Simulated assay, not measured.
Amino acid sequence: MKSSSARRLIAAVLCLFVASGLTACSSPAAESGTKVTLGFSAWPGWFPWQVAQEQGFFAKNGVNVELKYFDSYTDSLNALATGAIDANSQTLNDTLASVSGGAQQKIVLVNDNSTGNDKIIAAEGIVSVADLRGKKVAVEQGTVDHYLLLLALAEAKLTEKDIELVPLATDAAAAAFAAGQVDAVGAFAPFTSVALERPGSRAVANSAEFPGAIPDHLVFTAEFVKDHPTEVQGLVNTWFETVKWIRDNKGPATDIMAKRGGVTADEYRTYDAGTTIFTRQQNLDAFTPGTTPSHLNYQAGKIIDFMLATGLVKERPILDGLLDDRFVKAVPE
């Protein structure tokens, strides 16, 4: 789930000196000897990593990247939490769940916000979330669409106890709904396309109704950030160069991302409005402490409150150092 950014072409790799807090520019570097294993899964805001690989932007920015695609988003979360990979593409909600379980992680980049590509899709005759009472709803437990479902139920004055939750991986949940085995499903693009193949189906809630609730990030283990800041910077630089290339080469970029998502280019274009790619400035604004849903510290607090209230976590995690904006700040404007 989900649940990208747009901007700058970078010609140099920035070297970050953690101890002094200073940055210095170097000439374009050869690919680093330290390999970064980067995980991502099926979400439009993360498919630009596939573009970065195919266009050679990792090497151009001096980073040696092993890009690892996970068919199961949950598997990618577990891989980062256990140190099997160095970095992962994941939501704020799921990062907080990992941190509450003791994982040491750092968010270094906001890829995007989900603005409609996470949906609660229901069968014909179900016209609102309130109509889900007593119905079978498939969703991947503990992930962001489970969170979206709980938010939507709460707004309709319902709880999870008012439905029959069917726990399934997102791809299986969408397939089960399309086959008529459940009454509704919580899913993210591109799996929403599978779910909507069911005749008469419709979205009764989506992430656009909960602004800022589902931001998506590049998340590293804290140890890797401490030991390899230059590689982290190279990956952040790569991101902004990639999304600029996508903006300037929309057709070829869409073909690459659609292929990775297993959909047609035309179908992939329907996801554009539902995933808002963050610019560098939007990243800086999000990392700045504030009191609105656009600020990550505020959104993290709201998510934790909800997770505590629903029993998804048992105690409030310590978030000191989780949000690390050094690398976005070091990207040239």
Rank of each mutant, 00 (worst) to 15 (best):
E160D: 05
S201Y: 13
G251K: 15
V144L: 08
W239S: 04
K244E: 15
A169M: 09
V243T: 15
F191Q: 06
W239R: 03
V129G: 03
A175W: 06
A178Q: 03
D216I: 00
S128I: 08
R202G: 12
T230P: 00
T170C: 01
T221S: 15
D145P: 05
D216G: 06
H217V: 05
R198C: 11
A154C: 06
A222T: 07
A156Y: 09
A154M: 07
L196D: 09
R202V: 14
A184L: 07
V185L: 06
V236K: 01
R202M: 14
H146G: 03
N249W: 15
V232Q: 00
K226H: 03
A174T: 07
V127C: 04
G251M: 15
A213K: 01
A178H: 00
A123R: 09
N237F: 10
I246P: 00
R198I: 13
A187I: 12
D183I: 01
K161S: 12
P229Q: 12
S207V: 04
F188M: 13
N237Y: 06
V185C: 04
E231R: 12
K250I: 15
D227E: 11
K157T: 11
G142P: 06
L235Y: 02
V185M: 04
T221R: 05
L165A: 10
A130Y: 07
A213I: 02
F188E: 06
T230N: 07
Q181A: 13
L132I: 08
V137S: 00
K250R: 15
P167M: 05
